[in-house]
Design a binder for these strands. Structure first.
Lengths: 104, 104
DNA sequence: AAAGAATATAAGTAATTACTTAAATAAATT
DNA sequence: AATTTATTTAAGTAATTACTTATATTCTTT
């Protein structure tokens, strides 16, 4: 959890996650969307990967990154439910909804 | 949002939020639970307050802090729904649940 | 009014983080 | 086999963050 929150505490990294929400992208595709060097983006990617939020796969010359959406949802939902009393009663019900959806 | 995620990227600050989930506490009560100086805890408290996650009220000699649970829930839920495709279909329904609950 | 208690602010330092450019590695192309 | 392309690793630096102790402020008690 520590690593997830640390990973999320950066605007460029949250932006990377938003890009990956819609599509798998190569390291270069991602770097092209930022006004910073490729090594800097590469470091952000490894922070996100070490936090378990994304995963990478090398195909030929490219390294493709994609989101691991469950990791993000689990940590954030889990945390908000632990800390916000109001959200606790919703926990069981929202999990039921999610489980139902996964079956489909 | 920037400030919220930055505030959450610290174990002592997440611990403070957890303490405040159960009760309102004075700055001293909180500081007593940590192995660090009172000014250090005071700074963590102001980071949390600037992020809009907690609020403070001076009563006599003491300053009491309490959680603003909606701020946390809104930012984290909002973010997870934006980034995690799977969670999107749940958005409307979970909001409906939350609204219903607020009416009570 | 003086002393004590609770808290915050100020100032300084150590540790961490976010970049940079340069060099290394690995795959594709000529 | 040499060159180009995609990416990462390495090394260094600037900026930020997380503490510390000392001082200031505000309230309470004597």
């Amino acid at each position: 959890m520590e690593r997830v929150f640390q990973a999320l505490a950066s605007t460029p990294r949250r932006k990377i996650l938003a890009y990956l929400a819609h599509a798998e992208l190569s390291a270069g595709d991602i770097a092209a969307r930022f006004d910073m060097s490729k090594p800097a983006v590469s470091q952000h990617l490894s922070v996100l990967e070490n936090a378990g939020l994304i995963t990478s796969e090398k195909r030929g010359q490219f390294v493709f990154y994609r989101l691991l959406p469950d990791a993000l949802a689990n940590v954030l939902n889990g945390y908000v439910q632990e800390v916000c009393p109001v959200s606790r009663p919703l926990k069981a019900e929202s999990r039921a909804l999610a489980d139902k959806r996964e079956d489909q």
